[in-house]
């Protein structure tokens, strides 16, 4: 049995909302805990990122345990960048034993984009192999074929890039992730709804849930920076222009407005099963976004 409450919600017709929290660089968890308390009843699940952008931080599993302790529903992020198959399996055993029910399976950004550029990149597995490995563990053996005393069970997610400039190879990978056991996808940030609609048409043939990735941009410079430095992000010029068009001090508000506009359209057109909000360091504004997008839970779960 999975520990996942999120899995049940995936099977409902509810419009789902997930968000993510970046853990601290250091042992001081107070801000992360504040963010958890702020968001846990307002969203259906909270991802805790795993050394996002290859920047060393407090681990995802540590954050997920805090989410559990505080009564929220965590999504553990696992990348293949830093751990080999032994370490990842061990972490999954720990996660399951401590009641964590959801795992987002990622290959991970290159070491080179982060703050430890000389570290050894592991990539013993890729995202597709990671998904399969977890399904193998669920069947009772580790990936080496050895029997497990107690098998885990997870609700598995993965990532997809609907706005990639060259979509065909990404769709092949998407298919492979589904065949490997992905049940839900949290997409890379989307901006261009035309390409997102095309992706959704393609994805409709599969029995998987798609949560559209919504990133909140705080400035035109941040958008430019992300375009140049953050893998998998492509902010269109029109959005950058829109951010530049407002006076200083109101740019974040504009970023929120853009996010809300996207969310509302997605919801009105019933484009996909939910959204995944990435506030990158500004977790505090997520409730405002939910309110503006009329996604406030009437009675918290």
């Amino acid at each position: 049995m999975t520990n996942s409450l999120f899995e049940e919600k995936l099977q409902s017709d509810e419009f789902l909302v997930t968000t993510e929290i970046g853990p601290p660089k250091g042992t001081d968890n107070s801000e992360m805990v504040e963010h958890i308390d702020l968001l846990k009843d307002k969203v259906d699940a909270i991802n805790i990122t795993d050394h996002q952008s290859s920047v060393m931080r407090f681990p995802s599993i540590g954050g997920c345990l805090l989410v559990k302790e505080h009564g929220g529903e965590p999504i553990l992020q696992i990348t293949c960048r830093d751990r080999n198959r032994l370490a990842i399996q061990a972490e999954l055993l720990l996660a399951y034993s401590r009641g964590i029910g959801n795992v987002l399976c990622l290959t991970g950004d290159s070491i080179d984009v982060g703050d430890h550029k000389e570290a050894k990149p592991v990539f013993d597995l890729d995202s597709v192999q990671l998904l399969r490995m977890i399904r193998t563990m669920e069947s009772g053996t580790d990936i080496g074929g050895n029997e497990l005393k107690g098998a885990p069970k997870f609700c598995l997610g993965a990532s997809v890039h609907p706005e990639a400039d060259f979509i065909e190879p990404q769709l092949i990978k998407f298919d492979k992730k589904i065949a490997a056991g992905a049940q839900f996808f949290q997409t890379q940030s989307i901006f261009d709804l035309d390409s997102f609609r095309r992706f959704i048409q393609y994805a409709a043939q599969f029995d998987v849930k798609i949560l559209a990735g919504i990133i909140v941009l705080a400035s035109a410079r941040m958008a430019q920076f992300m375009n140049n430095n953050v893998p998998g992000i492509m902010v269109p010029q029109a959005i950058i222009d829109e951010l530049s068009s407002v006076e200083k001090g109101k740019v974040l508000q504009k970023g929120i407005e853009i996010a809300v506009r996207l969310i509302k359209t997605i919801k009105e057109e019933n484009l996909c099963h939910g959204i995944h909000i990435m506030a990158v360091g500004r977790e505090r504004i997520v409730p405002d976004i939910l309110e503006a997008a009329e996604l406030v839970r009437v009675s918290p779960k």
Partner: peptide, 27 residues
Amino acid sequence: TKGILNGPCAGTKDGKCEVSKDMDCGW
């Protein structure tokens, strides 16, 4: 760059690798 076997990661852009605009994406 990652030596992965099942297709490109999401970081590829303009046919280049996520780590450098001067490096082709192998996938």
